[in-house]
Amino acid sequence: MTDLLQPAALAIAILADAALGEPAWLYRRVAHPVQLIGTVIAWADRRFNRESDTGGKRRQAGLAVCLCVTLGAFLSGWAIQALLLGLPDGPLWLGLLMSALIAQKSLYLHVADVAKAMELSGAEGGRIAVARIVGRDPEVLDAAGISRAAIESLAENFSDGIVAPIFWGLALGLPGMLAYKAVNTMDSMIGHKTPRHLDFGRAAARFDDLVNLPASRLSALLLILGSIAQRGAHAVAAWRAVRRDAHRHKSPNAGWPEAAMAGALGFAIAGPRRYHGVRVTDPWMNDGGRWQLNAADIRAALSLYWRACVVLGLIVLAIAAL
C-alpha cells in the first residue's frame, strides 16, 4: 500500500510547491528539514574533521560521516512516512512534507530576481542578485556573464533541486528524498577542494555525483520535451547539444541539463569564468551558440524551465493515476 501511495503524495507535493513555494511565515517558526540536516553536518565537520589528522584518516572520517548522515536521514524518513501514512488523509500530510524538499517555485523566483534586477538597474543590480545563487566572482561579470550565470544555475538546480528529489521520492518515498537531500547538502557544505575539505569531503562529493547521475540525464530529457511546447525553442538542437557537449563538462552531471537548455534556446553557456579570483577554463555547452545574453534570455530560460516542470508533474500524476 505504501508503494502505491508514494506517487500520490509526490503529486500533491509538486502541486503544493508550485503553488506555495517555501512559505516564509512557516520557516520563521519551524526549521526547514534541510536546515536540520545542515546543522548535523556542521557539527560532524567540527567534531571529526581534525586538522591534526593525516589525509587518510580524514578521508575515513569523512566516509563514516557521509554514511551515517545518509543512513540517519533515510531511517528518519522511513519512520516519519510510516507515521504519516497511518493518519487519516495520510498521503496529503506526506505530500505537504515532501513539498519542502522540492524547490520549483523558489528556484524560479531566485533566478527571476536576477532578470528583474537587470531590467531595473542594469548590470550593477544583476551582480547583487546573481551573487545570491552562484559562487563565481560577481564583480567581474558584465550583463552577458550575469545572464549566463543565472541560466546555468537554473539548469543545474533544475536537476539537483527538483528532478533528483522527485526521482528518489518515486523510487524510495520520503526516505529516499531525505537521504538524497542529506547527500546533496553534504556536498554543498563539505564537498569542496579546499585544504580543509579536500580529504574529509571526498566521499560526500563522490556520492553526490553518483546519486545525481540518473536525475541529470532525466532533466536533460525533460528540457528537450519542454522545448517542443515553447515557441523559438528547438528540441532537435537541444538533443544534439546534449550528445555533443554534456560529457565535456567538468561535472559528470551538470553538463546534461546545461547543454539541453543551451541547445534548446540557441545559447552558449558555461565556458571560462572566475571563482574566488581564479580563472576556470571550461568548455562551452552548445559551443557555437549565442553567448551575449541578457535579461530577456533569462526569461526565455525560465519559460522553458516551467514547461519542463510541467512535463515532470504530468509524469508523476500519470504514475499516481495508474
Rank of each mutant, 00 (worst) to 15 (best):
K181P: 06
A203I: 02
A268F: 05
L4N: 15
I41T: 07
L198H: 11
N157A: 03
G289A: 06
E258P: 12
L304T: 12
R50A: 14
Q35W: 00
G191T: 07
D209W: 01
G263F: 06
C68V: 14
N253C: 07
G176M: 07
L178W: 10
S99M: 08
L92T: 14
G38W: 07
M285N: 14
G176K: 07
V30I: 15
S251I: 02
W168T: 08
H32S: 00
W284S: 02
I269N: 07
A308S: 14
L10Q: 10
V40E: 13
G126S: 11
R240W: 03
R243T: 05
L15S: 10
S227A: 15
L63Q: 14
Y180V: 06
L75I: 14
Q230M: 12
T2G: 11
W78F: 13
S227E: 04
A262V: 09
G55M: 06
A296T: 08
L265A: 05
D199H: 13
Q35G: 00
R58N: 14
G255M: 06
A268L: 04
S106R: 05
A321T: 13
M118I: 11
P33K: 00
S188N: 03
A238Y: 10
F167I: 02
A179K: 04
Q104V: 14
A155R: 11
S188Y: 02
A11K: 13
R273F: 09
G21M: 12
V242M: 13
I146S: 04
S147V: 10
L314V: 15
Y108I: 07
F200N: 08
A103H: 00
P272Y: 05
A73I: 01
A150R: 12
L83G: 11
L96N: 07
R196Y: 02
G201L: 08
L85T: 13
A100E: 01
R196C: 02
A123Y: 08
V114W: 14
K181Q: 12
I133Y: 02
A8W: 06
E124C: 03
L97T: 10
M285D: 08
Y275Q: 01
G289F: 06
R59Y: 01
S52P: 00
W25N: 13
R47Q: 14
L92K: 13
R231K: 12
K57Y: 01
L141Y: 02
F48D: 09
A233M: 01
T39S: 11
L120S: 09
G176S: 06
K105I: 00
A246L: 05
A44G: 08
I224W: 08
I102F: 10
E51W: 12
